[in-house]
Design a protein around this nucleic acid. Sequence first.
DNA 1: TTATAAAATGCATTTTGTATACATCAATAG
DNA 2: CTATTGATGTATACAAAATGCATTTTATAA
Lengths: 172, 172
Amino acid sequence: MGFRFVKNNFVRLYNAVWIAKSNKMQLTQYTDFSLRVLIYLSQKKPGELATISEIAGFYGISRNHLVKVVHNLATYGFIQTTRGKNGGMCLARPAAEIGIGEVVRHTEPNLDIAECFNKENNSCVISPVCALKSILDDARNSFMQTLDRYTIANALSQQHGLSKKINIEFLR
Amino acid sequence: MGFRFVKNNFVRLYNAVWIAKSNKMQLTQYTDFSLRVLIYLSQKKPGELATISEIAGFYGISRNHLVKVVHNLATYGFIQTTRGKNGGMCLARPAAEIGIGEVVRHTEPNLDIAECFNKENNSCVISPVCALKSILDDARNSFMQTLDRYTIANALSQQHGLSKKINIEFLR
DNA sequence: TTATAAAATGCATTTTGTATACATCAATAG
DNA sequence: CTATTGATGTATACAAAATGCATTTTATAA
């Protein structure tokens, strides 16, 4: 489902050795859906609106979940929404001006925080001398900086004439 | 607790807007504990063993959980364990030769997989033309490559004489 | 002005994975 | 043989994501 790292057959035993599929260090479906909505909208003609039901139907995903995703995207100014009959949504900016990292930052909240010593909760006795916080900070920054090099416009492969094919599907 | 990004006061509404603390895109306690065990062991004198109870007591964490962590670390050759009376564990290699990335790869299984089109589960209609998979691959590789630049020996700050202080605490 | 269609909002429920507890088994020292 | 320590497997608790449902608000068309 989508591009996520999630839901594969890799099984690890967690008790004893590794048991089940982990879902940490992965983006949420929330982010997945957010990006896919933006990709969908990027294929619309200028001025044309898409509805939540239309997008949910296209991808075959939960309409209810998408409602929240769309609202969030609107709140942070990635899309513009119009209520009422013939309403819908469209990109608030050109796809080439919407950074993947920017979107992820608004859908994966804890990315910005590497909290080693939470004032209340810190119970790690070595935190005063522990450098892991900065090491992980460093790694997470690398992750986000890489995402920042891409935009929604980069998210569809332009090779092999497939973008034309997808247009047809999208706007059928 | 520890260095993790987890458990902070950042609250987002998830329904409607954002509700609760997300815990995605974060390392598990499993990894947290794994690294902390290795850090602890790196402060032991050569030949000296530590027990699970000792480490659990030192950090004030669940002994039961630590049992699995230790077993996993032994399975992948990071530590050597000895059962029975006067048993315990020690590092299998010098701390400077144990990479953070290497450890994380053995405790966060799904890091290696950016599965966009799972043979059975793929339901994303645009996956044939979707470039998000490679974009996320790229970002995740940046993350891991950064971790690969550090070892367990780098995980304790050597500044301000704190490493001496921690030694005392550790080996008291 | 009324009917309709769309997003906005809030709450409830289900699902899933992590964390934890608990109960034994296996091995080693003395 | 017995005590101690890791190894192993099962069961339970909890938190967060995902999903579903109901209602409200807003805008447009007829």
